[in-house]
Design a protein around this nucleic acid. Sequence first.
DNA 1: CACTTGACCTGTCCGC
DNA 2: TGCGGACAGGTCAAGT
Length: 297
Amino acid sequence: MPELPEVETVRTGLQRLLVGRTVKEARHDNQKSFPNSVEDINAFLIGARVMAVRRRGKVLIIDLNTGYSLVTHLKMTGQLVFVDSKEASSAKKRFGAGHPNESLVGLLPDRSTRVTITLNDAAILYFNDQRKFGWMRLLPTVAVPEIDFFKKLGPEPLQSEFTFRVFDERIMRRKKSRIKAVLLDQTVIAGIGNIYADESLWGAKIHPETRVDQISQVKRRALHQSIVSVLQLSIDKGGSTDRNYVNAEGKKGSYIQFAKVFRKEGTPCQRCGTTILKMRSAGRGTHICPKCQRVVK
DNA sequence: CACTTGACCTGTCCGC
DNA sequence: TGCGGACAGGTCAAGT
């Protein structure tokens, strides 16, 4: 669901579409999705100009010129969709208050819309979230790195600082844990979720249940490389649309077509032809090639 | 400390 | 056709 490549794809789109625009109006239907007070919203969001759109792990940070940032976690089913003024008015004319169809995701509010932010030029930013796990909140920009989630968050895997040495030191702190659980732990590495954990482990030929201290250094190096290349490839493909992920323009990503194991159970492994299996590891649906990724006892 | 389970949610799919 | 239940998986909190 939105993992690092998906959130990065949204970030790139919003950076281009939002920076320089100002906020005219904000509506939200649900205190859980956007817990700030009306006073805070009026003081720090309405009238604010967007300065930059950043990402840390799976979290988006929209910096405003009021000294506040709009921080958003999409969790499982969240979407941040920008609709320009032309699209917004023509969709309104054609569909009235109806629901958008497949090709018009995000062009109109639907029952999953939690927050609607109208911009100065009549463009609209929707925060949609079917399952209400996601959240959006206004925080002072200087306070953003101080929230618990960010203080504990691991390094960004696509920055040059993420060397094998850094990776290895961090996973080896969890040497008695199973590697899949470690990859999913955001305090070890930021941004990996279920899709890219499975894809990275297939790339390095490591079984997800292997204890970290049972993995050879050669394979740990392969895993480091695999994580970086899988995440980068996915960004190049605009992320994975498994269920309802869309980018800032409401468009789907295509990485899933290039996936080697994720949701590929029953199909032959591209390396050896063995049938891909689905199992459970770290409480998650987990996809492996049982021949390439051997269980280590 | 490692690990599992449950909670948070809603839509979809499967079997009866 | 309807209905109950399993399942999807990011994160946190509580339990083993």
